[in-house]
Amino acid sequence: FLTKYFNKQPYPTRREIEKLAASLWLWKSDIASHFSNKRKK
């Protein structure tokens, strides 16, 4: 799911990160680090 979202929006806003974190029961920092790691590849 996160990879699909990343393909659409590689630079999510803070609000989008909060929404993703809430819906996936993850920490915002986990979401942010996932996106930054994907951008590095």
Rank of each mutant, 00 (worst) to 15 (best):
11 Y>G: 15
31 I>A: 14
12 P>M: 09
3 T>P: 00
6 F>L: 07
21 A>S: 12
41 K>Y: 03
3 T>L: 01
26 L>S: 13
13 T>C: 05
29 S>Q: 15
37 N>A: 09
37 N>Q: 08
26 L>T: 12
29 S>C: 06
17 I>S: 02
17 I>K: 02
25 W>I: 11
21 A>G: 15
31 I>G: 08
28 K>G: 13
6 F>D: 00
28 K>C: 15
30 D>Y: 10
13 T>F: 13
1 F>K: 03
25 W>S: 14
37 N>G: 12
38 K>S: 06
4 K>G: 00
1 F>P: 03
8 K>Y: 02
17 I>E: 01
2 L>M: 07
29 S>G: 11
9 Q>T: 10
3 T>C: 02
31 I>E: 05
5 Y>E: 01
3 T>N: 15
7 N>E: 10
39 R>H: 05
36 S>V: 04
11 Y>N: 14
9 Q>I: 10
13 T>H: 08
31 I>D: 12
33 S>A: 12
14 R>K: 10
3 T>K: 15
11 Y>M: 13
40 K>M: 10
14 R>W: 04
30 D>N: 01
29 S>R: 09
22 A>C: 05
8 K>F: 00
2 L>F: 14
22 A>Y: 04
16 E>Y: 09
26 L>A: 08
27 W>I: 06
35 F>Y: 05
19 K>R: 09
15 R>Q: 07
11 Y>P: 08
10 P>A: 09
15 R>H: 03
32 A>G: 10
28 K>M: 15
12 P>R: 08
28 K>P: 15
21 A>R: 11
1 F>C: 00
3 T>F: 01
21 A>V: 08
32 A>P: 03
28 K>Q: 06
8 K>C: 00
23 S>R: 15
41 K>I: 04
18 E>R: 13
39 R>F: 07
33 S>R: 13
23 S>V: 09
6 F>V: 03
2 L>A: 01
31 I>L: 11
39 R>W: 12
35 F>D: 07
20 L>F: 13
26 L>N: 15
15 R>E: 11
37 N>M: 12
23 S>Q: 02
40 K>W: 08
23 S>P: 08
23 S>W: 09
36 S>A: 10
36 S>Q: 10
4 K>S: 01
34 H>M: 13
14 R>M: 11
19 K>I: 01
15 R>W: 03
